[in-house]
Design a protein around this nucleic acid. Structure first.
Lengths: 198, 198
DNA sequence: GCTTGTTTTGAACGACTGTTCAGATAACGT
DNA sequence: ACGTTATCTGAACAGTCGTTCAAAACAAGC
């Protein structure tokens, strides 16, 4: 046997990425073998190497695609009031991350399995995303509607809090995604807002 | 050769746990081999099995010790004002986690490498810790000083935010741990506090 | 100094790892 | 219909994996 009926890279390629994403998220990069991925795709191990030069690159490509999609999907209008921009960010972050829990999980957990070069690359993308939030916070501080001692710290604090949603929330439970968005928005808004004088 | 001069379980035992903690944190449980741990300890692989029945149990014991120490170290006085209790929690959490970044990292990242039974066990300990914070928030909501829509969500949000400190803060940089504590306290305090009427 | 118990070695087990590649077969272009 | 290209198989490579265990060497108690 060799090439199989119906085989096509347009079909197998995405299958490989999907299988890798799911398995890496569930068991961790190091714990998943190329043979497991192949089995999930329905193919022999060797065939995977038509779609990635090696396992490390497969991981890196998944992370990079995720970060690219994240940066691509977020839109911000500097002309709007900082409060509205922050509200938009909070809603976007929760929704975007909720829609792709596996990719998010990998992007946060498998950084240490990247080669130093790949790590630097992904970190730069993450930094670009953080900078978008920090710009919003800075604008709010400038105009006096926000009050945070250090916008860099506040940025990291807000992102950590929002990303935490993914560790517990799944659709179909007691709360809707809208409820979650609303509650996190209230907390974020209050956390960074200037307090009215006593 | 066999038993080596100066060998003793009181010495080797802690060495095994320390080496495992460091290596698991740095490379991940699945990526670290028993032979790597043995090399770090300065011993042959077989000797490790005097200190753990298997690799999985070694991981579990590290996690359980960490969670036990966490629950043991935190003290709360229900008689105090909720605001002070929360302040105490925030400071404690940041400090305790800052002091043991490897154990924290493992406790959060390696949950998926636990057997179902071990996972359930660790999750129960984590839940007990979360409940301590939730009790504080509930007390504050009851007395009107706090205002959060759902204390369970607020609990998870605050913990995620605080634990996030560990991903970026290391002593010796631009900020002291005290600075970080102060800033996070301000954000947490504002996030859960009742707003003064307009 | 001798015995008992503790600790480690060194070798071995079968299974699994990521990766390569020649050969086989299907799909595609003409 | 036929040549070319794309895709996959199956086998192989040299290592590494977690774990076990008899035998050896040290420590501790008497």
């Amino acid at each position: 046997m060799a090439r199989t009926a119906g085989s096509h890279s347009d079909i197998t390629g995405p299958k490989v990425r999907d299988a890798a994403l799911t398995l890496f998220a569930r068991h961790g990069f190091a714990a998943v073998s190329m043979r497991q991925i192949a089995r999930e795709v329905g193919v022999q191990v060797g065939a995977l190497y038509n779609y990635t030069p090696d396992k490390q690159t497969l991981l890196f490509d998944l992370m990079q695609s995720h970060m690219d999609a994240l940066l691509e999907a977020f839109s911000d209008d500097p002309a709007m009031p900082p409060r509205d921009r922050l509200h938009n960010f909070v809603r976007f972050h929760i929704r975007f991350h909720h829609d792709r829990p596996d990719a998010v999980f990998i992007a946060y957990m498998e950084l240490r399995n990247l080669t130093p070069e790949n790590f630097t690359n992904i970190e730069a993308l993450r930094k670009r995303y953080e900078d978008k939030l920090e710009a919003i916070l800075r604008a709010g501080v400038s105009s006096g509607v926000f009050d945070v001692a250090d916008t860099k710290i506040a940025t990291l604090a807000v992102i950590a809090m929002l990303t935490g949603v993914n560790t517990w929330f799944r659709s179909g439970g007691r709360l809707s995604l809208q409820d979650v968005e609303d509650q996190y928005w209230q907390m974020v808004r209050k956390a960074v807002s200037a307090e009215s004088p006593a």
